[in-house]
Simulated assay, not measured.
Amino acid sequence: MSIDFHKALGVHQDTLRLRAERTKVLASNIANESTPGYQARDIDFGAVLQSVQADDGAAGLAFESGDADLQYRVPYHPSRDGNTVELGMEQAAFSQNASEFQASLTFVNMKLKGLAKAIVGQ
């Protein structure tokens, strides 16, 4: 009998993949803070996770094949050069995303430890 890790880990494996992709998008925003005309982007985490869960994760993350789920940010204080990155906002989003990634990683770790104990028979 084999273990179906998608069922065993539940939403957490999809959450980790999505958080990792969001980290890349937010890091790109921060890196392009001084680039004239750069448009800050972000992922609607809830909507993308919901669509992945509805597809049972079989299709993978929708934005891996394109930018369909990336959304432009509307700046509070637009700059004259057309750049919409607001560093403080991006840093806060990056930090929150990193904390939530760590929480999901902790859940996955607990699930895997539980599976290991069940296999050993403890």
Rank of each mutant, 00 (worst) to 15 (best):
Ser51Trp: 06
Asn32Met: 10
Ala31Met: 06
Gly46Cys: 02
Glu21His: 10
Thr35Lys: 00
Asp44Pro: 15
Thr23Cys: 13
Ala54Gln: 14
Ala93Met: 03
Pro75Gly: 10
Val48Tyr: 03
Ala116Thr: 06
Ile119Thr: 09
His6Lys: 11
Val25Leu: 04
Leu115Cys: 01
Phe63Asn: 14
Gly60Cys: 08
Gly60Asn: 08
Gln13Ser: 14
Phe107Glu: 13
Ser65Cys: 11
Leu70Arg: 07
Ile119Lys: 02
Arg17Gly: 13
His12Ala: 11
Phe5Asp: 07
Lys7Asn: 14
Gln53Thr: 12
Ser79Lys: 12
Leu9Glu: 01
Val52Asn: 06
Asp81Trp: 03
Asp55Pro: 07
Asn29Pro: 02
Asn29Leu: 03
Thr106Ser: 15
Gln71Cys: 08
Ala54Ser: 14
Tyr38Glu: 09
Leu70His: 03
Gly46Lys: 10
Val48Trp: 02
Ala8Cys: 02
Gly60Thr: 01
Asn109Glu: 15
Val52Gln: 05
Ser65Val: 15
Arg17Phe: 06
Val48Ile: 09
Asn109Lys: 11
Ser34Pro: 00
Thr15Trp: 01
Ala62Asp: 15
Asp67Arg: 12
Glu86Val: 01
Ser28Lys: 12
Gln50Cys: 06
Thr15Ile: 11
Val48His: 02
Gln96Ala: 12
Ala116Asn: 13
Ser51Met: 11
Thr23His: 15
Lys117Gly: 15
Ala118Leu: 04
Gln102Asp: 12
Ser99Arg: 10
Leu26Ile: 11
Arg17Glu: 11
Leu105Tyr: 13
Lys111Arg: 06
Arg73Pro: 08
Gly82Pro: 04
Glu90Met: 04
Asn32His: 05
Leu87Trp: 02
Asn32Cys: 03
Ser95Trp: 08
Asp69Asn: 13
Ala68Phe: 02
Ala68Gln: 12
Leu18Ser: 00
Ala40Ser: 01
Arg41Ile: 00
Val120Lys: 10
Gly57Glu: 05
Val108Lys: 00
Lys111Tyr: 05
Leu61His: 06
Val108Gln: 01
Phe107Arg: 13
Val85Ile: 09
Gln102Ser: 09
Asn29Ile: 01
Asp55Arg: 04
Ala62Glu: 14
Pro78Cys: 02
